[in-house]
Design a protein around this nucleic acid. Structure first.
Length: 520
DNA sequence: TCTTTCACTTA
DNA sequence: GTAAGTGAAAG
């Protein structure tokens, strides 16, 4: 994207908070009814309209709008690094009594590799093969709508890593690549298996939160913004005294010369035009306008989303291969860490099919039914990716542990109900999981039977500069997502997505009932 | 570019 | 006091 102007230009005037609202009105996907076994007849399902309208507001604490407006950078470390600013959303419109699962994933925003030179980001080549997609299930999931709406939902514990073999469930990214976080809301119902045919879900994408993953900050202005706003980075904030102290300390350590970067940062700090604004932004959360995505109305979301071309139907022959077995030894060592326990409880690494084989083992998947809410520790979200190469034959529905998600860069997609439409293999690489379940986020496609060839276009929306409300109106045809593919989840660039054992269990109970208003 | 280490911070 | 999250800097 190389948004040279946006990414680097730092406006002199404070940027007002631009809370984004995402409105989602999940409805029965009647179109899909034909091909799937729904709890009710297609007509009945259709009549079970979802009356609920869900609004998602990106909390301004993602003052981020400042960061993101200039294409922020997020550090990724081998051991995992939190996102800062963290992804926080305010959710309204949920049924207080219905349980929902909130998930986040981060998908490639385009197919480019970037470089930062001359104070600007620019494309430098083709992207590396996408990493296996991982889902971050919010630790509170599943929880009632009341719970989610009670306060801001923070994904601050989500961690990013550049370790392709990460055993902790962190989201794996490639450095110098652009990514787009997505939020998913899945209706949960303990009485129904996760991913059953009528899964109700919404996908929300705030293009403003796109970022470039880096192992070290490239744009020092971004660095300064973070230093000024991240409490943990206080030590780098630049009072003259502190700076002198630091320099003194460094020199005392036989650093004969004050690093240029130190001086540069200092200068930047003193002149940062955003330090104050960002602070102001963090506190407020006002919605100005809505960004609606309804009824097939094709809107100008392209500017926000990666263009449909951004998700080329790449064969990904060299797609991410995630062979956990290669790091089995390492994994074992890591299991000693207490924080690894959450997923170890249900699936010891030695026996975890995920680690046994790079490819999901059909039978191993759904054996465990442990709720991941049984322990607080399990609230630590973990996800695991599959290692199925792009060329791997698509497993049968029974064999697929998890599901393939729509690779469509949906800015907002809401779907209720499910269809068992056969999926096209291309351009999406199938995504296989280790735990059998039906789809959490069924693939979205046009009306049943239609080709998803240009599925990107299905996600239409209108944008507002001040705020965004994304609405999905399946009732009106759900142009954004009409066809469900419960058995697979597809992601952009054919990124396979999987969830960890315990997470799978946690989301196992997704209601397939199309009526979001029903009490669970 | 990436990894490790460091000093510093918050919780 | 401890654990964990920061960016800087060196290697």
């Amino acid at each position: 994207m190389a948004d040279t102007e946006e990414a680097y230009g730092m406006p002199d005037t404070p940027v007002e908070p631009e809370p984004k609202e995402l409105q989602c009105e999940p409805k029965q996907d009647n179109q899909m009814g034909a091909s799937s076994k729904t709890p009710t007849s297609p007509q009945a399902a259709f009549t079970q309209q979802v009356r609920e309208v869900i609004h998602i507001y990106v909390h301004e604490e993602m003052y981020a709008f400042k960061f993101y407006k200039r294409m922020t950078e997020l550090l990724i470390k081998r051991a995992g690094r939190r996102m800062f600013p963290s992804y926080k959303v305010k959710v309204t419109g949920l049924n207080p009594k219905t349980k929902y699962i909130l998930l986040m994933d981060i998908v490639p925003a385009d197919d480019h590799r970037y470089k930062f030179a001359d104070n600007k980001w620019s494309v430098t080549g083709k992207a590396e093969p996408a990493m296996p997609g991982r889902l971050y299930v919010h630790p509170d999931s599943p929880a009632t709508g009341a719970h989610w709406m009670r306060q801001l939902v923070s994904f601050q514990k989500l961690k990013l890593t550049n370790n392709h073999l990460d055993p902790f469930g962190h989201i794996i990214l490639n450095s110098m690549h652009k990514y787009q976080p997505r939020l998913h809301i899945v209706k949960a119902d303990e009485n129904n298996g996760f991913g059953s045919k009528n899964t109700a879900f919404c996908t929300h994408v705030f293009s403003e939160t796109a970022f470039i993953a880096v192992t070290s900050y490239q744009n020092h202005k971004i660095t300064q913004l973070k230093i000024e706003n991240n409490p943990f980075a206080k030590g780098f904030r630049g009072s003259d005294d502190m700076e002198l102290h630091r320099m003194s300390r460094m020199q005392s350590k036989e650093y004969p010369v004050v690093p240029r970067s130190t001086v540069r940062q200092k200068v930047s700090s003193n002149h940062s035009p955003f330090s104050q604004e960002t602070r102001n932004i963090t506190g407020s959360s006002t919605l100005n306008s809505q960004y609606q995505c309804e009824n097939g109305v094709s809107s100008t979301s392209q500017d926000l989303l990666p263009t449909s071309n951004a998700y080329p139907s790449l064969p990904h022959e060299s797609g991410p291969i995630y062979h956990c077995t290669k790091r089995k030894g390492k994994h074992v060592r890591l299991t000693e860490h207490s924080y690894k326990k959450p997923y170890m409880d249900t699936s010891p690494s030695e026996e975890d099919p995920y680690y046994r084989s790079g490819y999901p083992q059909p039978s191993s998947s759904s054996s465990s039914t442990t709720s991941f809410r049984t322990e607080s520790a399990q609230r630590q979200a973990c996800m695991y990716a599959s290692s199925a190469p792009a060329t791997e034959p698509v497993p049968s529905l029974e064999d697929i542990s998890c599901n393939s998600w729509s690779s469509v860069p949906s800015y907002s997609s809401c779907t209720v109900g499910g269809g068992m439409q056969p999926m096209e293999r291309l351009p999406y690489q199938h995504f296989s999981a280790h735990f059998t379940s039906s789809s959490l986020m069924p693939r979205l496609s046009n009306h049943a039977g239609t080709q998803p060839s240009d599925s990107h276009s299905m996600f239409q929306h209108q944008s507002s500069h001040q705020a965004i409300v994304r609405q999905c109106n399946p009732q009106s045809g759900l142009q954004q997502s009409s066809a469900l593919q419960p058995t697979e989840f597809l992601y952009p660039h054919s990124v396979p997505r999987t969830i960890s054992p315990h997470q799978y269990h946690s989301v196992h109970g997704v209601s397939m009932v199309p009526d979001w208003n029903e009490n669970s």
